[in-house]
Design a protein around this nucleic acid. Sequence first.
DNA 1: ATGAAAGCGCTAACAA
DNA 2: TTGTTAGCGCTTTCAT
Lengths: 344, 344
Amino acid sequence: MASKTIKDIARAANVSYSTVSRALNRKEGVGAATRERIFVIAKEFGYTPNAIAQGLVTQRTKTIGLVLPDVTNPFFPEVAAGVELAADELGLSVFLCNTNWDKEKEERYLRLLAQRRVDGIIVSLIADEPEELVRDAVGDTPVVYVNHAPLRTERPFVAIDEDRGSYMATRHLIDQGYDTVGFIGAEAGGITSIPRLHGYRRAIEDAGIQYDERYVGLPRAGESSGSDIIMRMISEGCCPRALFAQNDVTAFSVMQGAQACGLRVPEDLAVIGFDDIPTAGFEAVGLSTIRQPKRELGRLSVELLRRQIESSLPEEGDSNQILLEPELVIRRTSGAARPQEPRR
Amino acid sequence: MASKTIKDIARAANVSYSTVSRALNRKEGVGAATRERIFVIAKEFGYTPNAIAQGLVTQRTKTIGLVLPDVTNPFFPEVAAGVELAADELGLSVFLCNTNWDKEKEERYLRLLAQRRVDGIIVSLIADEPEELVRDAVGDTPVVYVNHAPLRTERPFVAIDEDRGSYMATRHLIDQGYDTVGFIGAEAGGITSIPRLHGYRRAIEDAGIQYDERYVGLPRAGESSGSDIIMRMISEGCCPRALFAQNDVTAFSVMQGAQACGLRVPEDLAVIGFDDIPTAGFEAVGLSTIRQPKRELGRLSVELLRRQIESSLPEEGDSNQILLEPELVIRRTSGAARPQEPRR
DNA sequence: ATGAAAGCGCTAACAA
DNA sequence: TTGTTAGCGCTTTCAT
């Protein structure tokens, strides 16, 4: 029952097993006849090369790991698709790991991939892990950060300018005429909440508006979504006229909560998100947002990883740390304020 | 630079390398002192066990493969989450592969996983592959089908009763008072389009309605989404009053297309989907649908795989072929028809 | 063109 | 308790 090996084939073909190896790998120096015979037997035996054994000797697994926090947020699958595509072109397969916003799981997966001796790892960290932690988990395995870069890392990364994007989003809301513009953090936004909140605050203060904590809704214990937060804000009587949500999924949730409380979007509450996940563009939704070049993020991270694998040098330096530009996408949910119609 | 091996540690600790192996694997028969020494050195060396080598000798990789057609459709990540959870409890890691509705890629991944000698594979096939094809790709590797079962397979599977669910969806629309109820297939619905169309047709005919092909929109060449199809139907003047979409993503797309043409949902066009992806439940959307127990699908498939791996017998039989019941979820988009308000 | 043999890093008998 | 040895299935010199 155990699958056939190269030796079984060798025996059946009456050659040494090194000849079989050569034939199967299409290497020079095998007689056409023998080669033919070997292929026939291999097919007949249903031979499947043992990649484990191959990897052991070649020290190359032709596999890369992709560690993502949440495949359930459509943003990540889009990035994954970009990675897949690019990896495919290089003949690499992708081992996708979902950490589910669990720090321990993240570490476990990084370690695991290193143990499996993948050729490299692309990871979207869930928090600002100290570099040594990552290093400890992956050892010498090449790593590229995607979607976010830990502070002062020397590793290659591809991300977008979160601060800038958040500034643009907030600014847009202000320009639309809203006097009170709030921020809502994601339940599991991990690392991105810091720069996004920061960009929000910058825009607020640049506009000469007083930064007001009451309009900043960060998830508290027991709150699991943007909907919970907006409902809290409403019940506390400090719901702003416009909101910048940390990401589109949160924005959706916020809108759901607001609508459940009888608020209309954007008439009573304007909303803008971040990411531009596919559903944001749906007619029925029309969520204004900051677009991230998701597939591109994926593609580029593979490219950076390839460089690192091939050179096998630590390969530091600017050109390997890419910051992409965000893009403002205006849709329905951030329609202009109507000052003639004061709230309530 | 190459990572340290067990031998390096042995040398440094002045013991044989089998002792190191024993110590590191927490096996009996190692002096507390030596054990201690070995651990210290291992840590110091940043030792990472080579899973490749381990797998080669133990013949067990503690890894399973999960092959999915489209992580971009929120249905699949939910199933994946279920698989992850269950696998985790068994100490297995999951190698997630996205075929992107590409048959060739699917075969490649199955083969690849088999070559990597994963302990087993859970796959959601994109079409009704003949059993031999799968067999040819995976060899003796245990396989469980999820989300769909190929006709007359003897392998274990977990799926829901698609035909039944589709019947329920269609029936619901009819009960709501719609006289014309259509069907829209998914752009890349793969295998599920057959039973879902079948269930639709059964319900139509059971209700004494004449099955009318004009109301059945299957994607044609060049059409990439439900939106394209509904727009074609509208332009051809044969848009029904209510629609059962093959899945929620398609339903979303259909609604987008309909609304772009000025139709209101559900006033002008009632819609019901299939899957109950998370966004379907959002207030702003309120998509009626047929719920699939997605996480459960994942959990159960892992359980079936575990059985198969442990027994290593082909393990056929009824109890390993699970058909779950679908559940009708009524929301906003399938509101009752208002006969007093004839169309147009 | 083919074979023999070494060895990738590890586990698991079997000895000592 | 520890060491020795034989592989796991494969690629890759080095001979022939």
